[in-house]
């Protein structure tokens, strides 16, 4: 990717609302693994990789904002980002059998999870110029792959 800032997310609500987005068709652990790949490529975390106030098995969505610093061709590895993402992977891996999936979840509950995840990211996305391309509507979820 050539963009400098990127949202890695599995939240379908953000997929269509954020212009620079790497959408992961998987669970929160897959989002963390992809984010770790980016960190190893020299990207730095702009948002903390852990969710606030819910354990890994209590929410189906995870969104992480990263930035690629200047310094072509490949910036140095940011050790603090690596430490945070590895620690988060440790927390999620410990509960990987129980991580919540949105498959089969009642629509109202799934919408709540998607909206909260998006709300938690909104301020950060806005600050870094990635929010919003269009307003947030849970109708987007119903469109599925939009």
């Amino acid at each position: 990717m050539s963009c400098r800032r990127l949202l890695v997310t599995n939240n379908p609500l953000l997929r269509n609302a954020v212009p620079s987005c790497d959408f992961i068709d998987g669970n929160p652990l897959a989002v963390l693994l992809r984010s770790r790949d980016y960190v190893h490529l020299g990207w730095i975390l702009l948002s903390h990789p852990l969710y606030g106030n819910l354990r890994p098995h209590q929410h189906p969505y995870r969104s992480i904002l990263l930035e690629r610093p200047d310094g072509e061709p490949r910036p140095a590895l940011d050790l603090q980002s690596l430490e945070y993402v590895e620690n988060a992977l440790g927390v999620y891996s410990a509960e990987k059998e129980r991580i919540l999936s949105d498959k089969g979840m009642p629509e109202g509950v799934r919408d709540d999870f998607a909206v909260i995840d998006a709300e938690l990211m909104k301020e950060s996305l806005s600050r870094y110029g990635l929010w919003p391309r269009e307003s947030l509507k849970t109708d987007l979820l119903k469109g599925g792959e939009g």
Binding site: L46, H48, G52, Y84, R127
Partner: peptide, 9 residues
Amino acid sequence: NENVTLADK
């Protein structure tokens, strides 16, 4: 506060 971005933290 307890904000989301690492810069704020």
